[in-house]
């Protein structure tokens, strides 16, 4: 990497939707280059149960249930929830219920760009954003970019990790942590 570069390679953002339906539901997005793994996922992380019904010992904590939609690679859906470990003790361990798209059809789905190029050739537009959408996206992001440009060099992170320290702080402010994809 060029040591003088001020180009950002990582971004993390918290969004909220100002409607009654989505109030209290934060959306955390993050994207970056040279992170731990190449992966695209949407995860719905459910709230913890308010009370510890199982009376687990000190330090023991129930995990958070999650519904993970794996967009790429290894397309599929995973539901993650706590389950009692067999035996006399009361211990709860997180287990997964897995749907693998590739397994259900024993036929690999085409790579993302294969579909796009085919659609270009066919002149089929639904997979491409319209110019209004692109314009609007930049209208939202341009002020952020302009602000960042005044801040000098962005914070560094080591390749192969899940981003800079400040991204963890963003989550820590809300008492959360990023899940490991």
């Amino acid at each position: 990497m060029n040591p003088d570069s001020v180009t950002e390679t990582f971004a993390a953002i918290k969004l909220e939707i100002a409607t009654r339906r989505w109030s209290g539901v934060p959306f955390y997005l993050r994207a970056g280059k040279r992170l731990g793994r190449r992966v695209t996922e949407i995860a719905v992380v459910f709230k913890r149960v308010p009370e510890n019904v199982f009376g687990l010992g000190d330090g023991a904590e129930l995990g958070q249930n999650a519904l993970v939609i794996r967009v790429q690679p290894d397309e599929g859906v995973t539901l993650r929830f706590g389950s009692k470990v067999p035996g006399i003790g009361t211990q709860v361990r997180d287990v997964t219920m897995d749907f693998g798209y590739g397994h259900a059809f024993t036929e690999a789905s085409p790579e993302a760009y294969e579909r796009l190029i085919l659609d270009v050739l066919l002149g089929d537009p639904p997979l491409f954003p319209r110019h209004e959408e692109v314009e609007l996206s930049w209208k939202i992001l341009d002020p952020i970019e302009e602000f960042w440009a005044t801040q000098g060099q962005p914070e560094q992170y080591r390749p192969g990790t899940w981003g800079p320290h400040s991204a963890d702080e963003l989550m820590a402010r809300d008492g959360r942590t990023w899940r490991r994809p």
Binding site: V68, G160, T161, R180
Partner: peptide, 16 residues
């Protein structure tokens, strides 16, 4: 020397 970098990409999602 970079043990963390070696394992990060291979850890199971979410699992402890």
């Amino acid at each position: 020397a970079d043990e963390e970098g070696l394992v990060t990409g291979l850890l199971l999602p979410d699992a402890p």
